[in-house]
Simulated scan of single mutants.
Amino acid sequence: MNRPARLAAAVLTVSMAMLTTACGSGGGDSSAAPIKGSGTGDGKTSVAPSASPGGVKRPEIKLSQDFQADFESWTNSDPKLQAILDDGREELRSKYAAIIEADPESKAVVFYNSDATQATARKWIRQFTDDGDSIIGKVRVFDPQVKLSDTGSGVLFYCVDERQASTKNRKTKKVVRTPDKPESLVQYRLRLDKSAQGVWKTTSLTTVPGACS
Rank of each mutant, 00 (worst) to 15 (best):
M1S: 08
M1V: 13
R3V: 12
T13I: 01
L19A: 14
T21I: 06
A22N: 10
C23L: 10
G26W: 04
S31V: 07
A32Q: 06
G39S: 08
T40N: 13
T45N: 10
P49M: 03
P49D: 03
S52L: 04
S52G: 15
R58S: 01
K62R: 03
L63D: 09
L63T: 09
S64Q: 05
F67M: 06
F71M: 07
S73K: 05
S73N: 13
N76I: 01
N76S: 09
E90N: 02
E91I: 01
E91F: 09
R93T: 13
S94Q: 11
K95E: 14
A97R: 01
I99F: 05
A102Q: 05
A108H: 04
A108C: 14
A108P: 08
A108L: 04
V109K: 02
F111Q: 00
F111W: 07
A116D: 07
W124Y: 13
D130K: 13
D130H: 10
G137T: 02
V139W: 00
R140Y: 11
F142C: 11
S149C: 10
D150S: 13
D150G: 15
E162T: 04
K168I: 05
K168M: 11
R170I: 02
Q187A: 14
Y188C: 14
S195G: 00
A196F: 00
V199W: 02
V199A: 04
L205M: 02
T207S: 06
V208Y: 10
G210W: 11
C212T: 04
S213Q: 12
